[in-house]
């Protein structure tokens, strides 16, 4: 999908992938899809934990060339 917002948080430690995702989610419009790229092993657990707690939606999650791709939809 070409209009997805790409959040490239590969090889970053601070503020880290989840904080980057939260920042970009705040700037995005409701309905927007964001694709987070992360090399942090912890992202596989902590990203879905926050997304589900707030009530957004995980569209897809997969790993490619050691990079975790998590696609999230802002629903509110």
């Amino acid at each position: 999908m070409s209009d997805r917002i790409l959040v490239d948080a590969k090889n970053t430690f601070c503020p880290g992938p989840l904080m980057e995702l939260i920042s970009n989610m705040k700037m995005a419009d409701v309905g927007a899809e964001l694709e987070l790229l992360s090399t942090d092993e912890g992202s596989a657990a902590d990203i879905p934990e926050w997304v589900n707690k707030v009530g957004h939606e995980i569209i897809e999650s997969f790993k490619e060339d050691d990079v975790l791709h998590i696609i999230v939809k802002k629903v509110k």
């Binding site: 430690f13 601070c14 503020p15 880290g16 989840l18 939260i22 902590d46 926050w50």
Partner: peptide, 10 residues
């Protein structure tokens, strides 16, 4: 704190 621990650096 915004994420799941008390600072972004583990």
């Amino acid at each position: 704190y915004p994420i799941g621990r008390v600072h972004s650096l583990e």
